[in-house]
């Protein structure tokens, strides 16, 4: 059991380029959850606040990534 648990953390996952971009989503969700847990005063507004911040971060990153990709295409 311990060896199996340890192997989970000692063997890396095989990722493709496309999968790497999708792994951005849970990371952004973590940032949104912790930030809102610290800043929000009300538990009732917490889920909607997290969702709004998560979407904002993801859309912002997509916009920056898309902009840089277009710039790269124009210049190279």
């Amino acid at each position: 059991m311990t060896a199996m648990l340890a192997s989970l953390f000692t063997t890396a996952m095989e990722l493709s380029g496309r999968q790497r971009f999708f792994l951005m989503l849970p990371l952004c969700l973590s940032i949104a959850i912790v930030y809102k847990a610290i800043r929000n005063d009300s538990m009732q507004r917490f889920p909607i606040g997290v969702l709004t911040l998560w979407v904002t971060i993801v859309m912002g990153l997509v916009a920056v990534g898309g902009g840089l990709w277009v710039l790269f295409r124009i210049m190279v």
């Binding site: 953390f9 000692t10 890396a12 849970p26 990371l27 959850i33 610290i38 538990m43």
Partner: peptide, 24 residues
Amino acid sequence: TRGLVCMVTIIATFWCGVAIGSVQ
């Protein structure tokens, strides 16, 4: 609640990262 939310999120993020890239 605030502490548990932070605890679960940060610990899960950290160990997911270790599981993805291996501890080495």
